[in-house]
Write a protein that binds this DNA or RNA. Structure first.
Length: 266
DNA sequence: TGAATTTGACCGTT
DNA sequence: AACGGTCAAATTCA
């Protein structure tokens, strides 16, 4: 009984990233985010017009990487894929991404997921045991933080996210300075996670070498509580040099912030 | 031949 | 009870 079915861990960091693929690219299928995934299931969602695909890290059986990914097509816009990442990569995924050349600029998204056991006092004080190295995401785009608007499926703006497929990593080198605003994600439910600067339009546009326009919409949820604000990272294809960046990833539990990319062993 | 994917069924949670 | 998620086996592709 390996716990088939159902959710295995409620306390797993999860963030949603909306990706809009431009037809003609060919990257729409696999949506290469730099990791190797293996599809292990597909299910139809009542609210979704299209089925949702479930992917798991290919190293799961080998290294025990618990990272999982869910890909869901937009209800109306087939060009938009909603990818929900769950868990973090603990594997040495040195197969797909990781260009040998200096690739020291990955983004480590730390989800402040916390104890959502507000109702159940069964929470464990432990501070996440997931000391995994770091996973890198190729999110290079702008971040937009939405404080209110918890509309689950309502994204007014759907930027276009072009999957560079880890091409111009050098470009994102400066994409995320360690600045990272320490958002007070707070334990779990911030009464008002209102970010002053993130009043709705914080665009952090990375201006690559004019390579491509990135547009990404990210949904970050601390927990299921509506109290937690949703952080959305949006990228505008617009070449707006405006650098207003708000980082939703507030390591409330880990001040250490694993922002350093450990050397990738190829 | 091997690996990855596909489909159905089971189970846990809501 | 229904939905959502995962597993397991069968099938398909490389």
């Amino acid at each position: 009984m390996i716990g088939s079915g159902g959710i295995r861990r409620k306390t797993l960091p999860r963030w949603t990233q909306q990706v809009r693929v431009s037809l003609g690219r060919g990257l729409e299928g696999p949506l290469d985010d730099g990791f190797s995934w293996r599809k292990y299931g597909q299910k139809d969602i009542l609210n979704a017009k299209h089925p949702r695909g479930y992917y798991r890290c290919s190293h799961r059986n080998v290294q025990g990487c618990l990272a999982t990914k869910q890909v869901q097509r937009s209800d109306e816009d087939p060009t938009i894929f909603e990818i929900t990442y769950r868990g973090r990569h603990t594997c040495t995924q040195a197969s797909n991404i990781v260009p040998p050349p200096a690739s020291d600029s990955e983004k480590v998204l730390q989800d402040p997921n916390n104890d959502m056991d507000l109702q159940h006092h069964n929470h464990m004080p432990l501070q996440n045991q997931q000391l995994s190295p770091e996973m890198l995401l190729n999110l290079q785009a702008s971040l937009k933080v939405q404080t209110e608007n918890l509309d689950t499926h309502e994204q007014s703006l759907i930027p276009s996210f072009n999957f560079p497929s880890t091409s111009n990593i050098g470009a994102q080198t400066q994409a995320f300075p360690a600045t990272v605003i320490d958002n007070n994600f707070v334990g779990s439910y911030s009464p008002s996670f209102i970010s002053p600067a993130a009043s709705g339009t914080n665009y952090f546009s990375v201006s690559p070498s004019g390579m491509n326009s990135l547009g990404g919409h990210q949904h970050f949820r601390g927990c299921e509580s509506e109290l937690s604000g949703i952080i959305s990272a949006a990228t505008s294809a617009t070449n707006s040099p405006t650098v207003g960046l708000d980082f939703p990833f507030g390591p409330d539990f880990d001040p250490n912030f694993t922002f350093d990319n450990h050397g990738f062993y190829s």
